[in-house]
Computed example of a mutant assay.
Amino acid sequence: MFTGIISSIAAIQDIEDHNGIRTFDIEFEQGFCNDLDIGASVAVDGVCLTVTKLLPPNKASFDVMLPSIRLTTLGSCNAGTKVNVERAAKDGAEIGGHPLSGHIDDKTKVAEIETIEDNYRLRLELPPSLKPYIFPKGYIAINGASLTVSEVDKSSNWFEVWLIPETRRQTTFEEKALGDYVNIEIERGTQVVVDTIRNTLTDALGPLLPEFERYLTTKNSSIDSLTSTTVRHISKK
């Protein structure tokens, strides 16, 4: 498990492909590899990877399987690419962000960037597969960093996050350009609530579900609105 609080920025030193596996040699900041063992988990741009080799003093190797290469931004990384990194949380560790598994749900493009004094806003395309799970004020992990969704426009398919100076300093976000891809992991509690509500409505209404959705439209509402309200209500408890 990870906390979504990025430890530091690391650099990919070398990449080697062999039989559908991509091996990354990554150089970390001094001290990051202290007590790091083979088999340990490290989140690299949000992707949970396993240490396969230690290269003292500050390097380690990781094997990335084909599904992760295809689904995540690791498939487009090159030698020299900088990445966000976090070591797995220890038992009893403070969860400064929100619990993360390191299992990426999708990747998406940076659609807009705005800097207003010390404020930094990222607008990102909203992947259709994740649309039901992303709400204003909800948690989301982008390249492994736990962030709060500020605004969502599901009709135009975008959502926004704002970054504080500390997050900008500790991560690679300021190096992103328009059109660059980032990894997304949705918040699992939100996913469970949304899926439960949708499955309950489907089971209860059956063929009447489309009629119910049309009725909600007449009230300027939707199933997404209902689930969003429920998620926010639960999160306050």
Rank of each mutant, 00 (worst) to 15 (best):
F2N: 02
I5T: 09
E16D: 11
E16H: 15
F24A: 12
F32T: 01
D35M: 11
L36N: 03
D37C: 08
D37V: 05
S41G: 11
V44K: 02
G46Q: 00
G46P: 02
V47D: 03
V47G: 11
L49R: 08
T50E: 03
V51Y: 06
K53E: 15
L54Q: 07
L54N: 13
P56W: 07
P57K: 04
P57W: 01
N58T: 02
A60M: 06
D63P: 08
V64R: 08
V64C: 14
P67Y: 04
S68E: 13
I69A: 02
L71D: 07
T73G: 12
T73M: 04
L74C: 13
S76M: 15
G80V: 02
V85D: 14
R87P: 13
D91Y: 15
G92P: 15
E94D: 05
G97M: 00
G97Q: 00
H98K: 05
H98F: 01
P99K: 00
G102F: 00
H103S: 04
I104F: 02
D105C: 09
D106K: 11
T108E: 05
K109A: 11
A111S: 15
A111P: 12
E112A: 11
E112N: 14
E117L: 09
E117V: 04
N119F: 05
Y120S: 07
R121Y: 13
L122W: 00
L122V: 02
P128K: 15
L130V: 08
P132C: 07
P136A: 01
P136G: 04
K137C: 03
I140V: 14
N143M: 01
N143L: 01
G144V: 00
A145T: 08
S146T: 03
D153R: 00
S155H: 06
S156W: 00
S156R: 09
W158H: 05
W158E: 02
E160M: 07
E160A: 06
W162L: 13
P165G: 01
R168W: 05
R169I: 14
T172E: 07
T172K: 03
E174P: 09
E174M: 13
E175I: 03
K176F: 15
K176S: 10
A177L: 15
A177N: 14
L178T: 09
L178Q: 01
L178H: 07
G179Y: 06
D180F: 10
D180P: 10
E185W: 00
I186V: 12
E187Y: 04
E187I: 01
R188Q: 12
V194N: 02
T196V: 13
N199H: 04
T200M: 09
T202F: 11
L205M: 10
G206Q: 15
G206K: 12
P207G: 08
P207S: 14
L208R: 13
L209R: 04
L209C: 10
E211P: 14
F212M: 13
L216R: 05
N220Y: 09
D224A: 13
S225G: 09
S225P: 11
L226V: 15
T229I: 11
S235F: 04
K236W: 02
